[in-house]
Design a binder for these strands. Structure first.
Lengths: 233, 233
DNA sequence: CCAATTCTTCGGTCTGGCCCGAAGCATCCC
DNA sequence: GGGATGCTTCGGGCCAGACCGAAGAATTGG
């Protein structure tokens, strides 16, 4: 297989609207069953099955068999990252279009706050990032993102505990991820995931009808204000 | 247009083998005419014309009219980056396949040294990166790449002059770019481009039959050995 | 063991879009 | 102007692949 075909291969995979819908449904990091994905993409189970096997053999999805269900999830954060960068690109390509989308009422909740694979994005994600940058806990530059030397301690005081075990993988601790709705970077990587999972566990945010969008709870509003100085969105 | 369709849109674009071949031909940053691209992709001029207009209206390509020729080039380094990351991904997905490709004789020259948009990749690119890292001129980490504080001076002594004007765009000075053949990072960004163009200008390297592959000249071998300690590839 | 559920495999249909031939502009050179 | 070159538009042929119905495997619960 030549290198151009490799390019075309992944393109074809993502290029089909049905498969794209499935991938998008998985972008929040959850594992979904084949039938759930079929429904999400609006096709029958047979059709979905074919698409899923394609995505899995290409290595984009990892499959876990559990009883009579098959749970599908993105193969890793790199995949989510790749998809986000594709979406970011298309968003930037047509400014007028993007503007039209941005003002669409249906996506309002998504723009306000959503998960991006395993971390927070949208206005909420950007606001938290800004707060941590303002306090010199996180440093963003053109070259990437860094956790400042005493950032880890500052985070612990706020109740955010980074996983002690340095992950053996090469997953970055703190990576900027460009927000396609806000057009500004928010925090991804291990730190981003830690913040998001803490926010869920502490009841600050809740998933909206099982989609990527999230809402801030009453207690969440108070805590976000107290810790990060984040006002109402 | 919903967000899933945006994903599918760009996927479809790169998903066609003909368009993928064209994009690949442009990956070295040159501008090519429509007929050159037609030949590169193995299709007639009419067919090529259709594909090129698709790529251009999607914003992946920028077109410049010059007399009766139309010069096409990638719209920017972000596009090249996006494509490289797609290729990188597919390379990683199937280790056995990738191995088979890696040992293919036809790609031997490409593996040895090639341009990756506007900087050097392959064994040569990685070797230069390693040399600069060993001398503490460049620092790579999980979080990205940096030029060390006194790196700029050290580079100047070697005859490498970075553009004085800080580019207004957000293009990073020194960015790691994963090499799909070597599976290790090499230097991209402004510094990578500076090194590559200097190598061309000084006659260290030359394009091989107008492709992305390059060969090291006799004088290039001596200079690369002297400056970077790079031996024969 | 039977029924229900989830998922896959198989065959057949149908359409989007890739491709080329022919013809039409645009530009350059003589 | 007339002819060559580069590129685009139009029309129709053709095929990969997406889709579904029907039937078959795998698993669970009663």
């Amino acid at each position: 297989m030549s290198t151009v075909n490799r390019l075309a291969e992944i393109g074809t995979l993502v290029g089909d609207p049905t498969r794209a819908a499935m991938l998008e449904a998985l972008m929040d990091g959850r594992a979904l069953t084949a039938s759930e994905l079929a429904r999400a993409a609006g096709v029958t189970a047979q059709t979905a099955s074919g698409h899923l096997s394609q995505l899995a053999t290409a290595g984009l999805l990892s499959v876990e068999k559990q009883g009579r269900h098959r749970y599908h999830r993105l193969a890793g954060s790199e995949v989510a990252r790749l998809l986000e960068s594709l979406m970011e690109w298309t968003a930037g390509a047509e400014p007028k279009m993007a503007r039209a989308i941005a003002t669409g009422p249906r996506n309002a909740a998504m723009r306000r706050a959503r998960t991006c694979y395993d971390h927070l994005a949208g206005q909420l994600g950007v606001a938290i990032s800004d707060a941590l940058i303002a306090r010199n806990i996180v440093i963003f530059s053109d070259e990437g993102g860094l956790l400042s030397p005493d950032g880890s301690d500052a985070l612990r005081e706020m109740g955010l505990r980074l996983p002690a075990t340095k992950l053996k993988g090469t997953r970055p601790l703190c990576r900027p991820c460009l927000d396609w709705s806000e057009r500004r970077p928010h925090i991804a990587g291990v730190l981003g995931a830690t913040i998001a999972s803490h926010a869920f566990d502490a009841g600050w945010i809740r998933r909206l009808d099982g989609s990527r969008a999230v809402t801030v709870t009453r207690t969440g509003e108070a805590e976000l204000k107290r810790l990060f100085g984040v006002g109402a969105l």
